[in-house]
Design a protein around this nucleic acid. Structure first.
Lengths: 155, 155
DNA sequence: TTCTTATTGCATCTTAGTTGCAATAAGAAT
DNA sequence: ATTCTTATTGCAACTAAGATGCAATAAGAA
């Protein structure tokens, strides 16, 4: 469990409550459970990881995967979550609360993910979008390859 | 059909013949058909587009989708093709022959894809990989958002 | 022409994600 | 507190992408 789990969770719950009010949506027990689970997970995770975590911690709460899939777009829209890595089968999410905008190197052999932060890179993307009169919603920048430890043994 | 279809196709077939020889693989009629279809398609395409193109042009050749899925990794490894856009459901491919290394803006409303070429951006990625001792195989850089024509009507 | 074995097509499976719908429960109105 | 509206839920069934096991086929070397 991450260090400031409680603080981040509380912050997230408040944000989502406000979001629901603004959008005339309902703040349900299921969504609260889901957000709590979200912050129990560190780093990058797929929907399946999230579901398993919910079910492990709330064996009696019968939250359907459908509900999770339906809630995800709202959580992203509320600014709690975003899609993360490119080039894997299923979509991988990560928290945005307390995480600055960053990108990823992904090892094709061991699956390790290295985050990197490059304002220069973000600046270039911003400039290109401006030139094309393109309204950016979500940048994705991933380099797939082999990490330091795997590259020697990579075919 | 792209301008220099014949030239590119021939070049691709030659490359793939050599690749098969080197890897003790068989250069089959099915793979040849597939490569020809590949170069009939412009720009970005999914496996399904490829299959439809093959079946339209070769109604009697019964190429199974399984075979296409199995051949794709080889075509990529041979340098004819690469995975292209991030953040869509199915994987999108594009030719590499005669296409310099570029990236994409993708409109979430109309689906339009704008290519852009930025050596600065590639340079930054290269520098980061060097620093992390990471062997890059495939860069992905996509900005999802709304294009000039769609951004005013985007909720 | 023969023989080895990579590749194919088919059928079947898996996994991610979606949809329709009746039942439930927020939360606003009374 | 109770009622009422309607957003949300759980379930089941569906779709679509892609993978897999296997017997039949066909490259291409001998």
């Amino acid at each position: 469990m991450p260090g400031n789990y409680l603080k981040e969770t509380d912050q997230a719950l408040t944000i989502f409550k406000d979001y629901c009010k603004k959008k005339q949506m309902r703040y349900t027990l299921e969504r609260e459970t889901m957000i709590k689970a979200l912050y129990r997970l560190e780093g990058h995770f797929a929907v399946d990881d999230l579901l398993r975590n919910i079910r492990r911690h709330n064996p009696k709460a019968r939250i359907a995967k459908t509900s999770v899939y339906r809630a995800l777009p709202f959580l992203m829209d509320a600014g709690l979550l975003r899609e993360s890595i490119a080039g894997v089968g299923s979509i991988v999410y990560e928290h945005t609360l307390g995480h600055r905008d960053h990108d990823h190197l992904r090892c094709l052999r061991c699956g390790k993910i290295v985050e990197f932060y490059s304002p220069d890179l973000i600046g270039i993307q911003t400039r290109i979008c401006r030139k094309e009169q393109f309204l950016a919603v979500r940048r994705i920048n991933t380099v797939n390859g082999y990490c330091r430890l795997c590259k020697d043994t990579a075919g």
